Deep mutational scan, measured.
Amino acid sequence: SRHTFEINGERWTVEGVSEELKEILRAAERASNDEAERLLRLALKLI
């Protein structure tokens, strides 16, 4: 499935992501810059 999210003013669209990964991306959208970066690094390990 496709998911579009915005982090630090940048929009991203990813396809074929699991519900778990979507949850991480949604958390990154709400997080501070440092926390968002940490969550994105974690998410990339899952891809």
Rank of each mutant, 00 (worst) to 15 (best):
E37V: 10
D34E: 14
E37R: 09
I7H: 02
L42P: 01
G9L: 03
G16S: 10
R41Y: 08
L40P: 00
R26G: 07
E20R: 08
S1G: 15
S32R: 07
R26F: 08
V17A: 15
R2P: 09
R2D: 12
V14G: 01
N33L: 11
S1Q: 12
N33T: 14
E23I: 10
F5A: 02
L46F: 08
E20L: 09
L44N: 03
L44S: 04
I47A: 08
E23H: 11
L44R: 07
T4K: 04
R30I: 12
E23S: 12
F5E: 02
R2K: 15
S1D: 14
K22M: 15
N8H: 05
G16V: 14
G9K: 01
A43H: 02
E6P: 03
R38T: 07
F5L: 06
R30S: 10
R41L: 13
N33A: 15
A27P: 00
L42N: 04
A43Q: 00
W12Y: 14
E35K: 04
N33W: 15
L44G: 04
E19P: 10
L46M: 14
L40W: 06
V17G: 10
G16H: 12
L39I: 05
R41W: 08
L40F: 06
A43C: 06
E35T: 06
A27K: 12
E6R: 02
L40T: 02
A27T: 08
T13H: 09
E15D: 10
E37A: 10
L39T: 01
E15S: 10
L46D: 04
S18K: 03
L46Y: 10
E29H: 05
E29C: 04
A43F: 15
E37H: 08
R26W: 06
H3D: 14
S32Q: 12
R41V: 09
E23G: 09
E29D: 04
K22E: 12
V17D: 07
L42M: 09
E23L: 11
L25F: 14
T13P: 02
A31E: 05
L40E: 00
L46G: 06
K45T: 14
N8E: 05
E35D: 09
A43S: 01
L44P: 01
A43M: 05
R41S: 11
A36I: 06
K45F: 13
S32W: 05
E20C: 11
A43R: 00
D34G: 15
K22I: 15
G9P: 00
E15V: 13
R2E: 12
R2A: 11
L46P: 01
V14C: 14
E20F: 10
L25A: 01
W12G: 00
E10S: 07
A36C: 05
V14S: 02
E29R: 04
A27F: 06
A27V: 05
E15F: 11
K45M: 13
V17P: 14
G16I: 12
R38Y: 09
A36L: 10
L25G: 00
E6M: 09
T13G: 02
E15K: 05
E35L: 08
A31Y: 03
L42A: 05
S18A: 06
G16T: 11
S1W: 06
A36N: 03
I24C: 04
A31C: 05
S32N: 12
E20A: 11
V14Y: 06
L42E: 10
E20S: 08
N33Q: 14
I47D: 02
W12A: 00
L44F: 06
E10K: 10
R30M: 13
E23K: 10
G9N: 04
W12D: 00
E29V: 06
D34L: 11
N33H: 15
G16C: 11
I7Q: 01
W12N: 00
S18D: 08
L21P: 01
L40K: 04
R11A: 10
V14T: 04
L46T: 07
F5C: 10
R11I: 15
R2M: 11
L44A: 05
V14Q: 01
N8R: 02
S1C: 15
E10A: 07
E23N: 12
V14R: 00
I24V: 07
E19R: 03
K22Y: 15
L25W: 02
N33D: 11
L46V: 09
D34S: 11
V17N: 05
N33P: 15
L44W: 05
W12K: 00
L39S: 00
T4G: 04
R26E: 11
T4Y: 13
E19K: 07
L40Y: 07
R30E: 10
N33C: 12
L42Q: 07
G9T: 02
L39C: 03
L42G: 04
E23P: 01
R2V: 14
E35Y: 05
L42D: 08
K45E: 15
V17K: 03
E15Q: 10
R41N: 14
L42T: 04
R26K: 11
K22P: 00
R38N: 08
E29I: 05
E29F: 03
E20W: 10
E6I: 15
S18W: 08
G9E: 03
E6K: 02
F5I: 11
